[in-house]
Design a protein around this nucleic acid. Structure first.
Lengths: 136, 136
DNA sequence: ATAAATCTACGACAATTGTCGTTGACAACC
DNA sequence: GGTTGTCAACGACAATTGTCGTAGATTTAT
């Protein structure tokens, strides 16, 4: 059986995951320092959260060096998808369109991003037509 | 001064808000019964959470009847937008395109919804061109 | 008018989360 | 070789969250 580590990461955990996704495998020190100046919390806090995440299976670590090296055990895409699906169900009644509207309204999307989304839309509609035989 | 109730609703709170958004003003009993069969929690749990939400300013209540009538004090759109913005910043590095990709991949979007999104896209691009003088 | 049902209010409680302080081990430096 | 700095581990702690049980008031039914 495959373990299903389907627990949503908390806010603090997600922040650390984001750093790992961006930097790749890192020491606690590196992660902590990457958290930016607005982060007020101490080093041991970061360490403790990383340890919890290890227990939960969100990260793995290499202990062969004195400074353990942590790396993400969950893929960014998969975690993101899970979070989006969750939000979709809980706050948007499962309607992707509503969520997309809010997403595009929330932050300025660049022209490039809008073009990317349009391309994605084309692909999805093409797939729909192929499969669904354009029934109403 | 206007109160800034900018606290994110918790999962349980969001579930109750969703009911209120859908049903309109309701009594605790109505809200609790609307929670569906998969909800195992007792009546007093729902009541307690509603009371907390009242303190936080997420809902308001009319106490003129014995059965108090609760109604949402925050608009669905605004709350949704806040949640999306939050997720965007924390998990997607602020890139709306990535989030939209996951949203559309997570749940099957109907042809109608895809068309809606396409229309939204058209509007946004039109606005961009008008304002931004199509610079790269 | 009594009994039964319903409703709010008030804690109580365990679990989780985020926060550190301290300690003991190890490494680096002089 | 002694001092200073860095690190993981552990436990403590307050705050939050979700969960009820019970008590007291009031409405409804008998």
């Amino acid at each position: 059986m495959k373990e299903k580590p389907k627990q949503k990461p908390t806010d603090a955990e997600l922040a650390l995951l984001a750093v790992l996704w961006q930097r790749g495998p890192s020491t606690v020190r590196e992660i902590h320092d990457s958290l930016g100046a607005e982060n007020e919390t101490g080093y041991t806090t970061t360490l403790k959260i990383l340890q919890k995440m290890t227990e939960k299976g969100l990260v793995r670590r290499d202990e062969s060096q004195r400074s353990h090296i942590y790396h993400a055990a969950v893929a960014a895409e998969q975690t993101q998808r899970q979070l989006v699906r969750d939000l979709l169900r809980r706050a948007f009644g499962g309607s992707p369109a509503n969520l997309v509207v809010q997403a595009l309204a929330s932050e300025k999307a660049s022209a490039q991003e809008l073009a990317d989304i349009r391309k994605l839309l084309d692909e999805l509609e093409a797939k729909n037509n192929r499969k669904g035989k354009n029934r109403t």
